[in-house]
């Protein structure tokens, strides 16, 4: 069976496409486009909302409601919205499929982005926030220079979890007629071509892994090491001596250096069910 998949994946015609069917490259592009649209819209709503709610500490219930959305079955939501919205769209081409599925994708992407942004801003150490105000930062300065940089890890985990959710659900959206990599799965199933079906599945998995990897890299580059706790080993090693010097010059009893262990400890989840707690993608 694996052979079928390899054959299908190795067939250049499947990549370039024919006059009637788009190639794999085009389907990947379509898949990414649907994902990007949903994330942009959801981000434009949930990100500012999460920041404002987190900053003011008000309307936490809204976050709980959004989280409640997560327990709805994604396929059910997708098909419900499709059945509801599709007859209202009289456009040509993809619009009758695209609009309802994008609404569903946005609805699925909202909760993780909102909840994590909210929690990220809420979880900024209150001392740091207090000190920022006490040193004369204005409200926007506190937000941009202190709260956001510290909220970034959670913001990113929300964004990544939303992205995976959207990529996964966009695959299922092929069932109601949308393009994208899901096409291969459902077309392959309908025409009993297992190679195409599993090949599509492999491509979806690879795409999800790749996108998540890219986001992880962006996260690495933007999140301060002081927050992520990734302190370079070399620096930590070199610090051993200077720490000893401090102990002597600054006196004794300041407790052990914590740098070495922190890198390991801060990678551990603080709470298993923090809002960032991963839900499997749809």
């Amino acid at each position: 069976m694996t052979d079928n998949v390899l054959v299908w994946l190795n067939d250049p015609q499947n990549w370039s496409g024919t006059r009637f069917t788009p190639g794999i490259g085009a389907q990947i592009a379509a898949h990414l486009l649907y994902t990007a649209i949903a994330l942009l819209v959801a981000g434009a709503i949930a990100f500012p909302l999460g920041i404002v709610l987190g900053h003011t500490g008000r309307a936490g219930w809204l976050v709980s409601v959004a989280n409640g959305l997560r327990s709805l079955p994604t396929v059910g939501l997708l098909i419900l919205l499709y059945v509801m919205v599709s007859p209202l769209i009289s456009g040509r081409g993809d619009a009758p499929y695209l609009v309802p599925t994008e609404i569903a994708l946005v609805l699925l992407a909202l909760p993780p982005i909102l909840a994590n942004t909210y929690a990220g801003v809420r979880n900024v150490p209150p001392d740091a926030r207090d000190a920022a105000r006490g040193m004369g930062m204005t409200g926007p300065q506190v937000l941009l220079r202190v709260e956001l940089p510290n909220a970034l890890p959670l913001v990113f985990s929300g964004l990544r979890s939303a992205t995976l959710q959207v990529i996964a659900t966009a695959t299922i959206a092929a069932y109601v007629g949308l393009d994208g990599l899901g096409r291969y799965v459902y077309d392959g199933l309908a025409s009993h071509q297992f190679g195409q079906m599993a090949g599509g599945a492999v491509l979806v998995a690879a795409l999800a892994l790749l996108v998540d990897l890219v986001l992880a890299l962006v996260q690495r580059l933007t999140v301060s090491r002081g927050v992520s706790g990734r302190f370079s080993r070399r620096a930590a090693g070199g610090d051993g001596r200077t720490a000893a010097v401090t102990e002597l010059t600054a006196g004794s009893g300041e407790g052990r250096e914590r740098g070495g262990n922190d890198a390991e400890d801060s990678s551990r989840p603080v709470a298993v069910l923090a809002p960032s707690g991963k839900h499997p993608p749809g």
Binding site: T2, V5, L164, V185, F194, A201, V204, A205, A208
Partner: peptide
Amino acid sequence: GLLYTIPSLALFVIMPMLLGTQI
């Protein structure tokens, strides 16, 4: 973390390859 990244529909379809089961 990697396993979580794989969409479930893809995993359902890939499983027969690994287990030798029917689709």
